[in-house]
Design a protein around this nucleic acid. Structure first.
Length: 343
DNA sequence: GTTCTAGAAC
DNA sequence: GTTCTAGAAC
């Protein structure tokens, strides 16, 4: 898992380590060397999500904390990603967040063996059910302690093939009902592995309720979407590689497949199924809308709007999502991505 | 969403 | 000549 540090941009003190999912309160004091009385001793509460590469910032003090040019506001919470600037108070004391790969601490044998013990079911919700199935393709090869016969292909039982039901765009509705595809389910959602994963880990979280697309979402769906995101986060908790890979959770602005689905995808993009520009840009441009942004939009506006011209994002030049370097072709891009893979 | 392939790009 | 893309068909 990457390590997060909060870096003072005017270099007034050493970077402050933020540990994954541990809240830290900062403000006027020795750690920041801020002596400004406008800055509360408890100005902000910070919490890093190292898997997903952002921190949340809650303003506790009365005077404004800013992210770029926007005031957070007392009691409010926002996220800060690399590239954004956090000002502790009054547009002063600039900070950046930085995520670096943790190469210093090799994992213990105990930690390594932990993820393969899949016996413990997913924790939080009572009626959740972790289905006995390897969670990913990448480690299956070495991990398969499988005593069951290889999965057989059973044709979909619904033989009443009305034209729309059999259409390729309805494929997710079929897959999500197939117990062999299900990796997790509870009373509200089901998780399946993407049939054509675009990275080492690529899951889809789908609600049982049929919601055709982002356009159909309303305020009443906020809780469901929050649950989908929680379930997506839980997938990372049981993912054996979550410590060394970054993940993003989000929706395609204009998906091809019907039925709302949350992508949970590792950021290695190391997959033979990633074949063309559309694949690439759908996960690395504005076409990919963060789960938290969808939820925020829904809470704020009661609906989700997609910026006009978002479909044009699919035609953008191939650009590395990590170093922003442009690549001429898909094969060259894939070659380039190898340079960013964790060792 | 994928597969297939003509023809552009090299 | 081969590689790669983009659009049609499914």
């Amino acid at each position: 898992m990457p390590v997060c540090s909060l870096v003072s941009e005017d270099d007034s003190h050493k970077p402050i380590q933020l540990h994954h999912q541990q809240s830290v309160t900062l403000g006027r004091g020795p750690e920041t060397k801020i002596k400004d009385k406008k800055c509360s001793r408890e100005q902000v509460e910070l919490r890093a999500d190292c898997n997903r590469g952002f921190i949340t910032v809650k303003q506790l003090g009365v005077n404004p904390t800013n992210v770029d040019n926007v005031v957070v506001g007392k009691g409010n919470q926002v996220t800060v990603k690399p590239g954004q600037r956090l000002y502790m108070v009054n547009q002063q004391y600039p900070y950046r967040v930085r995520f670096t790969e943790d190469t210093s601490t090799p994992r213990s044998a105990a930690e390594l063996s932990k993820p393969s013990k899949r016996a413990h079911r997913m924790s939080s919700e009572g009626n959740a059910e972790k289905i006995k199935s390897p969670a990913n393709t990448a480690s299956d090869h070495h991990k398969m302690s499988d005593d069951s016969p290889p999965p057989k292909k059973i044709p979909p039982s619904g033989s009443d093939k009305s034209e729309s039901a059999g259409h390729w765009s309805q494929g997710l509705k079929v897959s999500m009902q197939d117990p062999k595809m299900q990796v997790y389910k509870d009373d509200r959602v089901v998780v399946i592995k993407d049939k054509y994963p675009k990275a080492r880990y690529h899951w889809l979280v789908l609600p049982w309720d049929s919601i055709s697309s982002l356009k159909a979402l309303r305020s009443e769906h906020v809780e469901l979407l929050k649950h989908m995101q929680r379930v997506g986060d839980q997938m990372l908790q049981q993912c054996p590689d979550a410590h060394k890979l970054r993940f993003r959770l989000g929706y395609h602005a204009i998906p091809s497949m019907s039925h709302v689905h949350l992508h949970v995808i590792s950021q290695d993009f190391d997959s033979p199924c990633l074949k063309n520009k559309k694949h690439w840009n759908s996960f690395t441009t504005d076409y990919f809308v963060e789960s938290q942004d969808v939820i925020a939009m829904l809470e704020h506006d009661g609906k989700v709007t997609v910026k006009e011209g978002t479909s044009e994002s699919l035609k953008l030049p191939l650009r590395c999502h990590l170093c922003r370097k442009e690549q001429p072709t898909i094969p060259k891009l894939k070659e380039h991505l190898k340079t960013h893979l964790p060792s």
